[in-house]
Amino acid sequence: MIAIVDYGMGNVASVQKALNFLNLQSIITNDHKLIAESNYIVLPGVGSFKQGMANLKEQKLDELLTKLVINEKKNFLGICLGMQLIAEFGNEPEKCDGLGWIKGEVKKMESNLLRIPQMGWNDIDIKNETYFNGILSRDFYFIHSYHFDVANKNDVSSYVNYGDKLVSSIQRENIFATQFHPEKSQESGLQLLRNYFLNAKS
């Protein structure tokens, strides 16, 4: 079973729809027991970092997820805000702590030349092929104004070029996370999700 964590930060329906399309059983929940019993944890989310952390803390999901993902090594997929929240720190709207699983800080994107947020399809430069096998197009859908400046480059599984080389996905052990939205990236996104749930092993 796949647990899609419901912490009041939108976007859960799209993720489940993509999983349904792939015939993968999932449940949208904030129930600690159900999350603990699942084989995979998906943390989606749109919205501000600080609000996201506050919502997780309010339901003590921060402690639960850290216990399951870091101590028990349960498979974890973070999407968009769900990738950013695993950082040590965020800055939206002001500096605050994240879950701290991956070293680095989520920072505001700054550019005089480019429009912010980055909104639309951009191609990624894949560093770790594990879950990207068989993908026909490297274009994925991005929508973000903050980016995760990852401290340890070995944790980065792909980059996207938007003014600067930005981290577009992270992989370390049982943790995989994407800045882009696989559930909104049509064929490529569905293929990535298929790969992930076929290959990720606890």
Partner: peptide, 8 residues
């Protein structure tokens, strides 16, 4: 914007 983020 403060609740849902700019991108939304």
């Amino acid at each position: 914007v403060s609740f849902f983020g700019s991108q939304c």
